[in-house]
Design a protein around this nucleic acid. Sequence first.
DNA 1: ATCCAACTTCAAGTGCGCTTCAGGTCAAGG
DNA 2: CCTTGACCTGAAGCGCACTTGAAGTTGGAT
Lengths: 163, 163
Amino acid sequence: MTPTRHDRLTIGQLAERSGLATSALRYYESLGLIHAERTTGNQRRYPRAALRRIAFVRAAQQVGLSLEEVRTALARLPVDRAPTPRDWHTVAGAWQHRIDRQIAELQLMKAKLTGCIGCGCLSLSRCLLYNADDRAAAAGPGARYLLTRDPDDGPEPAVGPDR
Amino acid sequence: MTPTRHDRLTIGQLAERSGLATSALRYYESLGLIHAERTTGNQRRYPRAALRRIAFVRAAQQVGLSLEEVRTALARLPVDRAPTPRDWHTVAGAWQHRIDRQIAELQLMKAKLTGCIGCGCLSLSRCLLYNADDRAAAAGPGARYLLTRDPDDGPEPAVGPDR
DNA sequence: ATCCAACTTCAAGTGCGCTTCAGGTCAAGG
DNA sequence: CCTTGACCTGAAGCGCACTTGAAGTTGGAT
């Protein structure tokens, strides 16, 4: 221990403490997510604050942000000091909305599954899962919104074992 | 409508009804997720059941399964008939566990964020977000488990504006 | 002074889930 | 018959988040 000075971490040390690979850290740095000073020999030396930024990044990823979005979010926080409660409040608030939305989606899905279990579902004209995807169409790729309420089932040509 | 016969869909029709691109459908087929018969002219004709399988795939993706996992799951369901309640019960039960876990993770995250908002957090020695990532280390990549309780904070050299 | 693990850069590779492209075939309407 | 749009295949490309590899340099310990 105390390989350099007690408050400057080498990339290896940062990797160990953050649980990320050194390659990931360099990658994050290339994206501007973290920053390092350099020794005279051009080696990176990270301030302890880097750990905090990394924690922020990982947390943001869990919340579903891309690294690019994380970069934007980080840009609003102080570069190498702890954020103020005010800084943090803004960010965390936005995250909570995302989390709430994700939880809501999962709960909806769960409810649909429960319904389907009960009804022996996935039959052609009744299943929520089925009808959500069908004729929802459009809505673009990516965040396809499947599983929102299906207002009407439409004129499906009777039930009968589909084939 | 009624372009071929009423119960065989062209890939274009399936695409429209499922909301997926034809390229995605061919891709799914290449993975064995869906199956089509061919016309004498070698064009695909999908049974209506394909819509159900696609719904299954999309739902599974939402639950976090990879297409490979979906393939495995689908292998346990009848190929082109509606699954029985029993079939379905097994699968849906497994999914619900996954969903529950995901919800729990999100709620934990949310709780931590709330705590951090209250305490003006992300300071070096106290923040849950910070400490979860730090010295959790290991645990492999991928499902990194960040945000579990931090038992001890360890001897952090006082708080003081880190730098 | 010497050693070697840890560091450096840059380019290329990986896995997933698709999309795009090139070059050709099919089928239904005019 | 001819056109046109939907379809076919196989290969390549894309975006994301990294990892791997090659070739060279640094720095802390002995």
